[in-house]
Design a protein around this nucleic acid. Structure first.
Lengths: 201, 201
DNA sequence: GGAGTTACGGAACGATCATTCCAGAATGAG
DNA sequence: CTCATTCTGGAATGATCGTTCCGTAACTCC
């Protein structure tokens, strides 16, 4: 019925997401987005609305792709406590290799827009809450498997793990030396309320 | 010999620092700075140079006032482990009261400018390293007082504490619920390698 | 094949930005 | 008082920003 579009909105949004992830909201111009998507400027407005709406769409895409992948891997781990450990180790390894220091789009959003923008802050909160919930699911599974020390509160430790994971991601953007990240992860993971010699006594 | 300036550079830099702290580098215009300092636009350039140089001066001022105050308090604590605990508790309390979500200027800088700006990143690194060193001093003092479990490495735990403190500050900007911050602090502080019943056994 | 609809490329607009220029005002030295 | 010097208020500059308009091209349906 009309001229077909020459772009794939999904592919384009992915490119947009990656550019915002790298450069931030204010640091990315519409010209940049036109260049990276190969799209027409006007079409870009037609599909997603203005820059702010496009940014929110990119953050949602981030949550549904990058974020969901990490959480799915955690949920799929047969040994939940080992899954949590692997998650931190994998992230610190990923950081060490990321010379362009992406960090985490959700945290970047919280820092850049969160103070003024209630919608963005709510979106970030959803993402972080989802991560916290994933940690809590893993801890509850661990408890049911008898891996947890009695009296340990999965909710409290899930909060700690979620914030700790954010701390690691912050170091990513920050360019902290690997030994700092490793030292942090080691000590942070030592809080996992696993059944240990000490508790058995 | 000439017309005297109508402003105090120290007072002005303080106001500049607070505005950058709240609004970020890109989020603060020269007009904003003119307004908040009451200074002349041209004088502002004359004293500090361009916007970027002014921002770096503000970050240095932040380190020398706000940052140094926290570290001095830690160094002054008679009971070093208690001093560390109080530092985290005081910060989470301060966060809960700060409805405008300042966060930490050093971390904000790392996130906003750190990817491109080597000078800014180096400056932030100095600040964070200084904080880590302060934690390490406290832990070494604790060890000398016999408060630390044998075999505990002050350097490793100092890294953990420094990153954990950053994590708390991140929650500030983020607007996380107080219970999350409290849960994190409680668990994070439980890693302090204090002599305990378990170790005595 | 013509009509209607949608996408395209690019120019154009108004606002805001960092930075600089300029004319007048305030001071101290001679 | 006069002059050199420095500061002040505000206008001007040039670039970049997000957003919109417009003439043309490509496609489907009748």
């Amino acid at each position: 019925m009309a001229r077909p579009r020459e772009f794939d909105p999904d592919v384009a949004l992915d490119a947009v997401m990656r550019l915002f992830w790298l450069q931030g909201f204010q640091g990315t111009s519409i010209d940049d987005l036109v260049r990276v998507t190969g799209m027409n400027r006007y079409s870009l407005y037609g599909v997603w609305g203005d820059k702010h709406a496009l940014y929110l769409a990119a953050v949602r895409r981030y949550a549904e792709s990058i974020g969901a992948e990490w959480m799915a891997r955690l949920d799929a781990s047969e040994d939940p406590l080992a899954g949590i450990r692997e998650m931190f180790v994998a992230m610190s390894a990923a950081i060490a290799e990321d010379t362009s220091r992406h960090g985490c789009l959700a945290l970047n959003t919280a820092l850049e827009l969160g103070r003024h923008d209630d919608v963005a802050r709510g979106l970030v909160r959803e993402i972080l809450d989802a991560m916290q919930a994933a940690f809590e699911r893993a801890l509850v599974r661990a408890r049911d498997l008898g891996q947890l020390a009695p009296g340990a509160d999965p909710a409290v430790h899930a909060r700690h793990l979620a914030v700790s994971f954010q701390a690691v991601l912050l170091q990513a953007r920050n360019g902290a030396p690997r030994e700092t990240v490793d030292a942090f992860v080691t000590v942070a993971l030592s809080t996992l309320p696993e059944v240990s010699r000490c508790d058995v006594v």
